[in-house]
Design a binder for these strands. Structure first.
Lengths: 191, 191
DNA sequence: AATCTCATGTAACAGGTTACATGATTAC
DNA sequence: GTAATCATGTAACCTGTTACATGAGATT
């Protein structure tokens, strides 16, 4: 039950159409929650049905025409309640550690270049976050809302730092001692 | 497409019945991928159908009787191929950062105790991983497979370290300057 | 034999993914 | 006016979640 609340948050920050929301889910919001345009349109329909948002009056609201949505008081109330809700942490759903564990059983095969690739992707993401921090908060946060936005950004920084640290060590370890013949190591592990 | 491969890995490590797998998904494997018993039985059926695993011959294979599965060569081959597959990192699906972002819009409300709770859960998980490390690898890894298993464990440690670091700072920041009246801060943000 | 627990399921639904469809606008 | 693009959707499918059902063995 997070996508509707992500959408409510985004619409409170700025009323938008489905396509605009989709673009925002590829940038800022998308760093913490992803969604395709099909999900977004489906969810906008549900939220409107439930009376939490409404489409702004438009002259010709047909297919192919932009339709802007804004949050109704009921939607804001629902979001407020969600913030206060108690909800346990979810286990990670990134398959990479799982693939490494599988590699421990069937052999590392060709996993090393994939680890390198992921390490570099996470490094790039980390650098991006650091640029945001320097660009948007050069003198620290100036309002209560900015303080919280910066905290969220720092969350991304801490997570990416964790990935980079882990993958850095994994690449180092696996390039050091495992590069003999992958087939041989696979056979040994599989026996 | 990760659950079937998680199951293949688990079954290669040790042939098991559905209920045994379910218990293992509450411990070791569950630290990196979660699954309910319903998911596991459904997936075991598919994997057997696909010829990747088979039920060990049993005298009375009826309902309510344990049914042990083992991986067939085709299953091992599928797992090996999955390890080598190229697959992009997934964006996190933990709603907590999202809730903090929402709090920036509708006010922090009662989120602080929830942040404390999560921080403590992640701290406990981190300590648990460190105990595993001390207990299972007191002199470092002794085989290639142990080296990889330890790497996976270190992944968990690095991720939990990231959470603890972030949540520690978030709690500190929000207890310092935000504790006036939540309602007032909510109104200010919402304006 | 009634009840409890364990193991194996079924069913219904929500959320996420991929492929495809259609109306409106813009570029040529 | 035709083609490309943009915006809004529909449909089918897969994964994950929750509630419930049933057979077998153990407990009383």
């Amino acid at each position: 039950m997070s996508l509707p609340h992500a959408i409510l948050t985004a619409l409170l920050e700025k009323p938008s159409s489905g396509s605009e929301l989709t673009r925002r889910f590829d940038r800022s919001i998308g760093y913490f929650w992803s969604a395709t345009h099909q999900q977004i349109y489906r969810e906008l329909g549900k939220l409107e049905q439930a009376g939490l948002i409404r489409a702004l009056p438009s002259p010709v609201p047909t297919r192919g025409q932009k339709k802007e949505y804004e949050v109704l008081p009921e939607g804001r109330e629902e979001l407020r309640a969600w913030v206060d809700r108690r909800e346990d942490p979810k286990v990670s759903r990134d398959p990479l550690p799982l693939r490494l564990r599988a590699a421990g059983v069937v052999g590392v095969g060709d996993l090393l270049p994939e680890l390198v690739r992921h390490r570099d992707l996470h490094r790039a993401r980390l650098e991006e976050y650091r640029r945001f921090e320097r660009r948007d908060y050069p003198n620290g946060p100036r309002t209560e809302q900015e303080r919280i936005q910066l905290l969220v950004l720092r969350g991304g920084i801490d997570m990416e730092t964790g990935w980079v640290s882990w993958l850095g060590r994994a690449v180092e370890e696996l390039s050091a001692a495992a590069p003999a013949t992958p087939a041989a190591s696979a056979d040994r592990d599989g026996a």
